[in-house]
């Protein structure tokens, strides 16, 4: 019974992760703008990978391999948001027609207004 429960849990987690990954892949190809694509890819990088790895960890148990998989998840969670952040920052720096794709608010002006006078 315990063995079956564990398998069931692992299967549910892995399949859920796969569903998130698939939707993320569709999003990456569906969206037309870089920042929107980052938003879709971030799903893959965080929730999808976490669920998939969690499923494998549950199936594997607290063995050395399970611990290593947890480390892999920690590593990916630490790095992929940074990569997305850098991509976004590069887009902001390199794109001259930013206002065509989104609402651009001058943050400094807003802050000045809030603090102002």
């Amino acid at each position: 019974m315990g063995e079956f429960l564990r398998f069931f849990l692992a299967a549910v987690l892995t399949l859920g992760g796969l569903a998130v990954l698939i939707s993320g892949v569709f999003g990456v190809f569906r969206f037309r703008y870089a920042l929107n694509r980052i938003h879709a890819a971030a799903l893959n990088d965080t929730v999808g990978i976490a669920l998939t790895l969690l499923g494998v960890i549950v199936a594997e148990g607290l063995s050395p391999i399970g611990i290593r998989l947890a480390l892999v998840a920690v590593f990916l969670w630490a790095t992929s948001p940074v990569a997305s952040h850098l991509l976004g920052r590069l887009e902001i720096t390199a794109n001259d027609e930013l206002s065509e794709n989104m609402n651009v608010t001058d943050e400094k002006a807003v802050l000045r207004e809030k603090e102002g006078k």
Binding site: A78, T79, V82, H85, L86, R89, L90, T93, A94
Partner: peptide, 17 residues
């Protein structure tokens, strides 16, 4: 020229990793 220079988030992550 287009490279994000001295990005604080990247630096913190790199220092850790």
């Amino acid at each position: 020229m287009y490279e994000p220079k001295n990005d604080a988030i990247l630096q913190a992550t790199a220092r850790l990793l």
